[in-house]
Simulated scan of single mutants.
Amino acid sequence: MSVISHDQKQQFEHDGVLVIKGFYDVKREINPIQKHIYEIIGLVAKRHGIPIQRPPFEEGNFDASYLDIIKNDRNLGAEIYDLITQIPSFIRLISSKKSETLFCDLRGTDMAGIGAGSYGIRIDNPHEEQFRSHWHQEFIFQPQSMDGVVFWTPLVPITRDLGPVIVCPGSHQKGLCVYTRHGVHANKSGSYRIGLSNETEVVSAYDHVAPLTEPGDLIIMDFLTIHQSGFNISNRSRWSIQSRFFNFNEPTGIEIGWRASITAGSDVEKIFPENFI
C-alpha cells in the first residue's frame, strides 16, 4: 500500500522535493528521540562537572542547557553530536518500514539501501557559519547511487529565524553539477570546502523554497536536488534528522560500487574527476 498519493509522487518527480506533513508519529516516534537527547545532554554535563539547571523533560525543552554546555566548552557539542546518533529510537526511525516503503514506492524498486555514514542528527547552532551546509547536491557527498532520496525531519518547530532548509525545485533535472574546493567556501574545513563551481550563477537559475515544518513532518529531496541549510539567526540550535535511501539497482551505483559517504572516507574527486575543477 502506498504511503503517498499519486499527485504527491508526480510533484516529487517534477520538483525533486516534497513536504509530507505528519509523516512520523510525534508521540511514538519523535518524542523518544527527544527524551534520549535530553538525558544525554544531562549525562555529558555530569561527566564533565558542568552544573546545569533544567526543567523536567517536555517535548519543547529537550535541548535545555545545551547552549550553556557548549558555551562552557565548544568541544562538548561534538561529544553530544556523536552520542545522539547511537539512540535506538533514532535508528528505528531512519530504518522504519514506512520510510523504506516510501522510498521503494517513489523509485519503483525493492532494493533499497541506507549508506554507511549517511544518517545523523544535525545540530546547527546560532550564527555558526563554519559548519553550515551550503549549496550542494547530496550525491556528491553520498555516492552510493545516483538514484537516492534525502529524508529530512525537524526535532524542533522550524521558524524563519531558525533557518529552514532552502531548496531549488527542479534542479535535479539537469544532472550532477561541477564542484570545486577552491571557491567561495575554501576557508571552511574538510568536506565543507567543497562547493558548486560558479555557485551564484547556478542557484540563481532556480526559484528557492524554504518550507516551515514541525516535528513529525518530512521533507524528501532527490539526491541531485540543489539545497542548503538555512541561516540560524535565532537564540536556539536547529535540531534535525537526516537519513538517505539509495537504489542498489541504479547503474551508476553499480559501476562505482555503492561508495560510502565522503565523511566515511570516499574520495569523490577521484570517483568523479570530470565533475571537479
Results as ranks from 00 to 15, higher is better:
Ala45Asp: 00
Glu199His: 03
Pro55Gln: 04
Val184Trp: 02
Gly113Ser: 11
Ile241Ser: 03
Thr225Arg: 11
Phe23His: 01
Cys104Ile: 02
Phe276Ile: 06
Gln144Ile: 01
Asp68Lys: 13
Ile94Glu: 04
Glu201Met: 00
Phe141Glu: 03
Gly115Gln: 13
Arg122Glu: 02
Ser65Tyr: 03
Thr153Ile: 02
Phe139Trp: 07
Trp152Cys: 02
Gln11Tyr: 05
Leu212Gln: 12
Phe62Gln: 00
Ala45Val: 02
Arg181Tyr: 06
Thr153Trp: 04
Leu93Tyr: 02
Leu218His: 02
Arg193Leu: 00
Leu83Met: 14
Leu76His: 05
Phe62Trp: 01
Ser266Asp: 04
Ile33Thr: 09
Gly183Pro: 10
Phe223Lys: 11
Leu76Lys: 05
Phe245Ile: 03
Glu58Lys: 14
Asp82Ile: 04
His227Lys: 13
Ile121Gln: 09
Phe151Val: 05
Arg122His: 10
Ile40Ala: 04
Pro143Ile: 01
Tyr38Pro: 06
Thr101Tyr: 04
Lys27Phe: 10
Asn198Trp: 00
Ile219Met: 11
Asp217Gly: 06
Val203Cys: 04
Gly175Glu: 09
Gly22Gln: 14
Phe103Ala: 01
Lys270Asp: 08
Leu18Glu: 08
Ile84Phe: 11
Thr85Ile: 15
Gly22Ser: 14
Ser189Val: 05
Lys21Val: 11
Ile91Phe: 06
Asp63Cys: 06
Phe131Met: 08
Leu18Trp: 05
Phe151Lys: 01
Val3Lys: 13
His227Val: 14
Pro32Leu: 08
Arg236Leu: 10
Pro143Lys: 03
Gly148Pro: 02
Ser65Ile: 01
Ser65Cys: 13
Leu155Asn: 04
Ser243Gly: 10
Thr159Ile: 05
Val150Phe: 05
Arg122Met: 08
His182Tyr: 13
Ile80Lys: 09
Ile140Ser: 04
Val209Phe: 07
Gly120Ile: 01
Pro126Val: 06
Leu162Ile: 06
Ala186Ser: 14
Leu93Ser: 06
His136Leu: 06
Lys27Ala: 15
Glu59Phe: 06
Phe223Gln: 12
Ala186Leu: 04
Ile277Ala: 11
His227Ile: 15
Tyr206Asp: 11
Val203Phe: 03
His136Tyr: 07
Lys270Leu: 07
Val165Asn: 12
Ser189Met: 03
Ile84Asp: 06
Glu100Thr: 09
Leu83Lys: 14
Tyr38Asn: 07
Asp267Arg: 13
Val202Met: 12
Phe272Val: 09
Gly183Arg: 09
Gly230Val: 03
Ser234His: 13
Met111Val: 11
Ile226Ser: 10
Asp15Val: 06
Tyr179Cys: 10
